[in-house]
Design a protein around this nucleic acid. Structure first.
Lengths: 335, 335
DNA sequence: CTGTTAGCGCATTCAC
DNA sequence: GTGAATGCGCTAACAG
């Protein structure tokens, strides 16, 4: 693997000059540049990114930490950021935190150790204090799907509570009063917020929240199935089911069908996130749109603007979810 | 950010000694080790991975290049590898190739530039020659879902042709003779192989492959929908539809339902890949299982064994798909 | 516009 | 068992 030194030798110039033509910021005469370029090509020279970032303390790459590498939710986030950054010739380095404190910290330190120019974090387990301290350090940090007042300008988040509210309201507006709810893991902020919004809507319509019609799920399809199975044992009738995400909704729908519950006629369902498969379920799932692609782009923009000093418009921090009406909710008579 | 030098100073030892306790291979007296450890903790010392790999030419991280960051297929691959590698304290660096030559090469060079200890590639656009040359270089390479005879031991792949065969056979066995087919992009090897298998099964049952019942899709749900719409204009009846992946099958099913085609009674459908959502479609999609999780683990094992010299059992190179029978295929009378 | 000189933070021979 | 010296490949002043 050729080094910059060999290139300089072959081109008959100093090593600094070679560095200059690579980082095309300072001026180099056309003649010498051509010589250098020719030498680079002849040697098949590839700059060593490691050495470069050790010397320059930059890496032209931003670190992304997601909870999981699998699943439509995170893949949308990662690909959105990557696409935007790639256009500016920046790269991404991805790590997974698995929603556990040690692993999240380990991942963050890995990314810092790789000298990322900035960090984009989707973390759930580490504390606010840790993040505030981290954000106070020398490396810029952006938080996805988490709102911390002290560093609000670094947070790109969705109004989950409003989303939960919209989902519940959609059912209430169709006359439903007995509404079951399957939440995400309640130690997660977004799960808590969605539930909060749900309850808020119920209160607005003066309907009680019934504990028998509540199940704490895990955001996985299997959890949705378990949730519905639980409801069915409660001897407490309900005409609608709200799930804290689409995955659980799909699991619940499968179980419903196995129990010969006609949807949407006997049971209306609403999800959350609007993942790509929501529209392919039967009935087509009404849900709340999580504008992840837009949020991913906003995040990348923030980095490009504030870290790499590119001129970009001001970015939006708080995103609003919208209700997506499809076919899984139908009108029901008051009972 | 504390450096190794500051640690050595605080501990009152040489910088080489600090390095030794970090790389716990050579012996250090217990006393000095404790001093060093204490100093490291006091300073909150974090080794600089960049400097380390520049000096050692190792990075304890393996590069993964996938075609896309989004989608269930790749997320399964990435998370499988990451989980296995994490257990051995290795990290992954991920890049996307987007199925285009320049971007794949760019991604590969990025990973090489980051001095990954090994490369795991899911590439579709670059040539066999390029890969053979790459594999001949100093950095170990493993190929996923691609078989190149010259470097067969570096290839972890699925017998796609057999998978296509199984899917078609499942329908033929149920009496179907008019079978439509929506393929993936035919310049991709796996798409070609799956189609090959499909045709092989047809031949075995002496049924002709009809061009009117063929559509070249794009592996996306939308492509599946377009495919079925195309078939419906062909004035050529068919009782079954085979799709080269589950995404397209789901898109086709949605279009079928919009056209009031009863499934599976009037139309049997089979997919390929067995993504998690296949079982939540209606009717539950019969498909061919792509053992991606197992393949991802096998890949990680190969790296651990051959690159990091851990003792692991021999890894399997060619995986066999199996048919997964669910509810989307029903018996039909010969016509 | 170009060359010289120092490091970046760490691993790794050599000596002792 | 430990310390001193050298260099990984490159960037960034500083001169000229």
């Amino acid at each position: 693997m050729a080094t910059i030194y060999q290139v300089s030798e072959l081109a008959g110039v100093s090593l600094a000059t070679v560095s200059r033509v690579m980082n095309k910021n300072t001026r180099v005469s056309e003649k010498t540049r051509d010589k250098v370029l020719a030498a680079m090509k002849e040697l098949g020279y590839r700059p060593n990114a490691i050495a470069r970032s050790l010397a320059s303390n930059r890496s032209d790459s931003v670190g992304i930490l997601v909870s999981e590498l699998r699943g439509l939710f995170y893949s949308e986030l990662m690909s959105g950021i990557e696409a935007e950054l790639r256009a500016s010739e920046k790269h991404v380095i991805i790590a997974a935190g698995h929603s556990k404190v040690e692993q999240e910290i380990d991942g963050i330190e890995f990314l810092i150790g790789r000298r990322c120019d900035a960090l984009i974090l989707h973390v759930e387990a580490v504390s606010d204090e840790y993040l505030i301290k981290l954000a106070g350090g020398s490396i810029p940090v952006v938080l996805i799907n988490r709102h911390i007042p002290e560093i609000a300008d670094r947070c790109i988040s969705l109004d989950n509570e409003h989303g939960g509210y919209l989902a519940a309201k959609a059912m209430l507006d169709q006359g439903h009063r007995e509404i079951a709810y399957i939440s995400g893991p309640l130690w997660k902020t977004d799960a808590k917020d969605r539930l909060l919004g749900h309850k808020k809507a119920l209160a607005e319509y003066s309907v009680d929240f019934k504990e028998q019609l509540f199940f704490e799920g895990d955001y996985l399809e299997t959890g949705g199935g378990k949730g519905l199975e639980f409801m069915l044992t409660q001897n407490q009738p309900f005409t609608a089911l709200a799930c804290a995400n689409d995955e659980m909704a799909s699991g619940a729908m499968t179980v419903a069908r196995e129990n010969h519950i006609a949807m949407p006629r006997s049971l209306s369902i609403v999800g959350f996130d609007n993942i790509i498969f929501a529209r392919h379920l039967y009935p087509k799932l009404s849900t709340v749109n999580y504008p992840m692609a837009r949020m991913a782009r906003a995040t990348a923009h923030w980095i490009l603007k504030n870290v790499y000093k590119e001129k970009k418009p001001e970015t939006q921090n708080l995103f609003k979810p919208e209700f997506v009406s499809r076919e899984s909710i139908v009108f029901v008579e008051d009972n």
